[in-house]
């Protein structure tokens, strides 16, 4: 059973640490995007370390399962790539090459040593494994590329907030399907992304009020990259190690892309706040439907285990089944 107070403490720790780092590094406000990217990546990193430390995730080293590999290899890798991308002399094509490499490796790394790739009777055949890994990498790149492009075309907080909503939906859905530990890792992640983009937007707005050019929009590819990889990793683990369905995982993954709807010409030129709010609402609708479905499944399958705790089922307060 979930421990809301633990999640609250972990979320609080993640929020405080990421806010402190972001405020310290973005104190001049009018810094360039590259410096803001570095600050964002570091704020997210330190916030995640604090959040996951409080969450007591009991990680193993070397990482033994998908979640361990996601938290100890994949997330640090994407942070490192986004830091490299912030170096002025690194060309954009090199940055994207690194992102392609990560996307290509990510599914294989997460499934390493699992029954799927074991070659046993109940694993995948070689060709099936190839196609699943290739399609998964392709999906990640599609979402990553389109959301990065969207945040460039329409900078602001709405794209990162859409991603936060999707991450929250993924975490809760995975938890309601029975994988508490995996789902709980979503809370510090969405918190640090939300706090970091909030601080960046606040600093940029303060700076724009003082400056002449009035630049008050944030477009931070580092935040988008970490959020997309975080969302994809959670859903991948929830699908292949937990019990969420392929349709659910794909719906949550693609929901943030609905933000492109606001790029239609008759919407794009409206008030930026209106466009931003509309974008968030459009993304939230399918996520809400997914959550309602997950709640329905939870009520049907897991809730009876909790409500009949006095019988042969363990789940009266929490850590059991």
């Amino acid at each position: 059973m979930p421990d809301p107070f633990l999640y609250l403490r972990a979320t609080g720790a993640a929020a405080i640490v990421s806010a402190i780092v972001a405020l310290a590094m973005l104190r001049r406000g009018a810094d360039g995007d590259r410096r803001a990217n570095v600050a964002s990546a570091l704020a997210i990193s330190f916030g995640l370390i604090a959040g996951y430390y409080v969450l007591s995730l009991h990680l193993t080293w070397p990482p033994a399962n998908g979640l361990d590999r996601f938290l100890t290899w994949i997330l640090p890798a994407v942070v490192a790539i986004e830091l490299v991308a912030s170096i002025p002399r690194v060309p954009t094509w090199a940055t994207w090459l690194l992102r392609y490499c990560l996307a290509a490796l990510l599914p294989r790394v997460l499934l390493h040593g699992s029954v799927y790739l074991s070659g046993s009777d109940y694993g995948w055949e070689r060709s099936q494994a190839f196609w699943v890994l290739a399609i998964s990498s392709g999906l990640l790149l599609i979402v990553w590329g389109f959301l990065t492009q969207l945040s460039r075309r329409s900078p602001g907080v709405s794209v990162p907030i859409s991603l936060c909503l999707a991450i929250q939906c993924a975490g809760v859905t995975i938890m309601m399907a029975g994988y508490l530990k995996g789902g709980s890792t979503a809370f510090p992640l969405l918190t640090v992304i939300g706090v970091t983009i909030g601080v960046a937007a606040f600093r940029r707005r303060r700076a724009s009020a003082d400056s002449v050019d009035g630049r008050d929009k944030v477009a931070l590819p580092a935040i988008i990259g970490i959020a997309v990889v975080g969302l994809f990793g959670l859903l991948f683990i929830g699908r292949f190690f937990g019990e969420i369905s392929t349709a659910t995982a794909l719906t949550i993954l693609f929901a943030p892309l609905l933000g492109w709807v606001t790029e239609l010409s008759w919407l794009r030129n409206r008030n930026p706040w209106t466009v931003g709010m509309l974008r968030i609402v459009i993304v939230a609708v399918p996520l809400l439907i997914i959550l309602l479905q997950a709640k329905r499944d939870f009520d049907r399958e897991m809730a009876p285990l909790i409500s009949h705790a006095s019988s042969a089922c363990p789940l009266p307060t929490g850590d059991d089944t």
């Binding site: 059973m1 009991h58 929490g318 089944t321």
Partner: peptide, 8 residues
């Protein structure tokens, strides 16, 4: 996971 060792 130690958190999965509770009521059981």
């Amino acid at each position: 996971d130690p958190k999965a060792i509770g009521a059981i």
